[in-house]
Amino acid sequence: MEQVPLLHVLILSTTIFFLGMYGFFARRNMLMILMSIELILNSVNINFLAFNHYLYPHQLEGLFFSMFIITVAAGEVAVAIAIIINLYRRFNTVDIEDTNTMKY
């Protein structure tokens, strides 16, 4: 069976990374922004796994790093969601532009 070349995987992960970055800056809904951050982190996971599989198949460092990333991302999202819920109680909206009271 023919393998997908490393370059293609890297193109995929970079595309996902910048899609996440675009979403982070362009979206107005906080949950969508959170999803964009997840996209960024998942592109990093793809990168780690691809490098591990193609370049250094005799070790497991990249694999374990990506497992830690998934775990920590879950904790991060839990705190972020808690803050968003609290913010929703104060402002009655999850639109990022309506919750901007402090400026300059």
């Binding site: 982070f24 960024i40 982190l41 592109s43 990093v44 990168n47 991060e76 972020a80 913010l87």
Partner: peptide
């Protein structure tokens, strides 16, 4: 609340950027 939101979003984003660099380093 607004400050907490801004901190968690910007720190999560910056961690993502940092990790992308680390994956390339790897």
């Amino acid at each position: 609340s607004e400050a907490g939101l801004k901190l968690i979003f910007s720190s999560a984003f910056s961690t993502g950027v940092l990790l992308f660099g680390i994956s390339m380093l790897y």
